[in-house]
């Protein structure tokens, strides 16, 4: 790691103040992505603002129509939360597959979406569920939040406070794990909210999470697995590497989409 100055605020306000406008300041949430990159000296921060003592950023609140999760809520807390299990069981199930148990004990929702790793799980859930990302400055719709590889709509000085998920009628998530890293090689989150059907794909896209509009259209006719029969995602813009070329990823998108719908309708 390169040297940095360490800060440990206890309120979101303090954290935002420390964050300032300087691009050289990084926020440390669960650290499960940031710290490995800093250890390998791939990321350098002049100042590191540790959010782990900011209790107000943690917690899960449920209303009849939405579920709100604090940015510093751990994956394990989401996975084990009775509120999440009742409101959006697919979200709890998804959280229970992120990384491994020790990673889930530290990793956070806010850290995951702010990092926007193209193979992370949460961006697909946010996008499919039509989540609203609440920052210290404004509210951002998920459709506007994820901007590409490790890029988001967050501006300097802005930090994620919480994420609000509308409760869907049905939702499901299926993931094909990257053989080595265990991130999503292809992850598909499907959600149905009245007439609005969304299919969000993570892991596969060269530019990060995206919506598979053809599948959404197909499912609008009927939200059943069969509606996806014969549908294959386009290879345009898909990743290709030693573990999976674009054609295989495109195929897996269809398979995972079907499995996600299967779960959602089970």
């Amino acid at each position: 790691m390169y040297a940095f100055d360490y800060h440990r605020p206890t309120t979101a306000r303090q954290a935002a103040g420390l964050l300032g406008k300087d691009e050289d300041v990084r926020l440390l949430a669960g650290g499960q992505s940031l710290l490995p990159m800093m250890k390998l000296r791939l990321v350098q921060a002049g100042d590191l603002v540790d959010l782990n003592a900011v209790d107000e950023l943690r917690g899960i609140a449920r209303s009849p129509r939405s579920l709100t999760i604090g940015a510093m809520t751990r994956h394990a807390e989401v996975a084990d939360s009775p509120d999440v299990a009742e409101a959006i069981p697919a979200l709890a199930a998804m959280a229970s597959t992120i990384g491994d148990p020790a990673v889930r004990a530290m990793g956070t929702l806010g850290g995951s979406i702010a990092n926007n790793d193209p193979a992370a799980d949460y961006p697909s859930a946010c996008l499919a569920l039509g989540a609203t990302i609440v920052t210290n400055k404004r509210k951002i719709e998920a459709d506007d939040f994820f901007k590409g590889l490790f890029e988001t709509a967050l501006e300097p000085g802005e930090l994620v406070v919480k994420v609000s998920f509308p409760v869907p009628a049905k939702a499901g998530y299926a993931k094909f794990r990257h053989p080595a890293s265990r991130f999503a090689l292809v992850g598909v989150f499907v959600a149905k909210r009245s007439a609005d059907i969304r299919v969000a794909v993570t892991g596969a896209g060269a530019n990060g999470v995206f919506r598979w509009l053809e599948a959404e259209e197909a499912l609008k006719a009927r939200f059943i697995v069969k509606s996806l029969d014969g549908l294959v995602a386009s290879t345009d813009g898909l990743n290709s590497d030693i573990h999976a070329d674009a054609e295989y990823r495109a195929h897996l998108i269809a398979v995972m989409a079907k499995r996600a719908v299967q779960q959602a309708t089970a």
Binding site: Y6, G31, Q32, A76, V103, A105, M106
Partner: peptide
């Protein structure tokens, strides 16, 4: 909770 001590400051 079990955590990876190589990935926690």
């Amino acid at each position: 909770h079990a955590v990876k001590s190589c990935t926690v400051l």
